[in-house]
């Protein structure tokens, strides 16, 4: 039996990859926005990452943003953001709804990293609920991490803070 173990392993492996399918998209952007605005999605707006906004964005991300503008959807005090940040090697897509300067809802829409996808679970994302941005650009809520998913946790934390900051800028512009 022992000598057939490699062959058996190979057969199981091949049968598995024969049924390969895409993983990691948990909710489409459309579904997220529909849910956020009860089916009546506002027109997309853009905020330019220039001047002080760019500086602060860089401070939050700890690297220069690769975009010049960020899209958002807003109605009155409510805004929705769909942002991506790389944890270790691949982007994690996150949808964030902010109302009156607090996170109302945060959801991992797509996870593409090899490890660390535990951050998509509700038990983790619930920690961001009602978080607001402190003057030092940190979240008002404590976010407990997940061992082995440190970089994914960090990516979510950064995007939550960035969305809150950009929402402040959006509000002040109006």
């Amino acid at each position: 039996m022992k000598k057939y173990t490699p062959l058996l392993s190979l057969l199981i492996f091949v049968s598995c990859i024969a049924n390969t399918s895409a993983k990691g998209v948990y909710q489409s952007q459309a579904a997220f926005l529909n849910q956020a605005f009860a089916g009546d999605i506002p027109k997309v707006s853009l905020i330019w990452l220039t001047g002080d906004i760019r500086k602060t964005t860089t401070q939050i991300l700890q690297h220069k943003p690769s975009r010049l503008r960020i899209r958002y959807w807003a109605r009155a005090t409510r805004s929705a953001w769909v942002l991506e940040e790389i944890g270790k090697e691949r982007p994690i897509t996150i949808g964030i709804v902010i109302n009156e300067g607090r996170i109302e809802h945060l959801r991992v829409l797509a996870f593409r990293e090899s490890r660390g996808d535990e951050v998509r679970h509700d038990f983790f994302t619930r920690q961001f609920s009602q978080a607001k941005l402190k003057p030092d650009l940190q979240l008002s809520n404590n976010i407990d991490g997940i061992s082995g998913a440190t970089l994914s946790v960090r990516a979510l934390d950064k995007l939550a803070r960035l969305a809150l900051y950009l929402d402040q800028q959006r509000q002040s512009k109006n």
Partner: peptide, 16 residues
């Protein structure tokens, strides 16, 4: 692709 709502594509902030 970035504006296609049918996929989960967000505004990417880092490029590697």
């Amino acid at each position: 692709a970035a504006h296609n709502h049918s996929v989960a594509a967000g505004d990417s902030l880092r490029d590697r």
